[in-house]
């Protein structure tokens, strides 16, 4: 036990929680969480994890802050335009909580670097905005036996699930990357800022619960929400024994960079 008085005070409102306490807080301070993508999902996740006292936070993003990001990527400010997103996020996290050590990766996650980056972390948050990255992260985490939180958002809709080794992975539900154009991207279809906030915050809560080992995670469940009618529901599913990555005879045993297949709508 080595919480300082100022730490006790800073974290008092979560230490009070029966399921956290000083022991939980110590676990948080000793934990390491990687956030991939410092965008709409990564922003709230990073802020909450830093505030909660997650001891080491990695943040990976290869982009720079753009004016069009600011409507939902709340960790970045107008003055940050043109700055690396990872750096901008680091500055804000350290501003909230000097207890936190921040590692930054100013690169896009890909087959070559994924395993190396995730290996140092206890939990990974997928805050990316494209399918190739999401599938890559899933595969990398499954192969490395790392738990992670998935979330996806579009327009007024969002979804989230959590993978831990032994339970269903993202590919168990979505075996392959959908062809290009079938599902539009946010830049094509738009996104309501708070939807990103809600889902990113759910991911932060999952990470904290995983670290303190309390509560029920979104494992083997997909949370689906719609902000337009404001409805939440969960769909349960099982691990797919034929899953190409976590199944009994996996086809995927090493990482490759995925290309989203071109959509063949014209032929239909």
């Amino acid at each position: 036990m080595s919480l300082t008085d100022s730490q006790v005070e800073r974290y008092s409102r979560q230490i009070i929680l029966k399921d956290v306490g000083g022991i939980g807080q110590e676990k948080l301070l000793a934990s390491k969480v990687l956030i991939i993508g410092a965008g709409g999902l990564g922003s709230p996740a990073a802020l909450y994890l830093a505030a909660a006292g997650v001891g080491t936070i990695g943040i990976a993003d290869g982009d720079n802050v753009d004016l069009s990001n600011l409507q939902r990527q709340i960790i970045h400010f107008t003055g940050d335009i043109g700055v690396s997103k990872a750096e901008s996020a680091m500055k804000k996290m350290q501003g909230i909580n000097p207890d936190v050590k921040v590692n930054i990766y100013r690169e896009r996650i890909c087959a070559d670097n994924a395993a190396g980056i995730i290996q140092d972390y206890d939990f990974i948050i997928d805050g990316t905005d494209n399918f190739p990255a999401k599938f890559l992260i899933n595969d990398a985490c499954v192969l490395a036996k790392k738990p992670f939180s998935h979330a996806g958002i579009l327009r007024f809709d969002g979804q989230a699930m959590t993978y831990t080794p032994g339970n269903a992975c993202y590919r168990c539900v979505f075996p392959a990357i959908p062809p290009k154009g079938v599902i539009p991207t946010c830049s094509q279809a738009g996104i309501l800022g708070p939807v990103a906030g809600i889902l990113g915050t759910i991911q932060a809560a999952e990470a904290l619960k995983y670290i303190i080992n309390k509560g029920s995670l979104l494992t083997n469940r997909l949370l689906i929400m719609n902000a337009f009618d404001m409805e939440f529901r969960t769909v349960t599913f099982k691990r797919n024994l034929k899953c190409p990555v976590c199944g009994e005879n996996p086809a995927i045993t090493e990482l490759t960079d995925y290309e989203q297949p071109a959509c063949d709508i014209s032929s239909r």
């Binding site: 036990m1 919480l3 006790v8 005070e9 008092s12 409102r13 230490i15 009070i16 306490g21 022991i23």
Partner: peptide, 14 residues
């Protein structure tokens, strides 16, 4: 309050 409770709780944990 609530620091007194927080501190008590921390002592009890040990």
């Amino acid at each position: 309050c609530p620091m007194n409770f927080v501190k008590t709780k921390l002592v009890l944990e040990g």
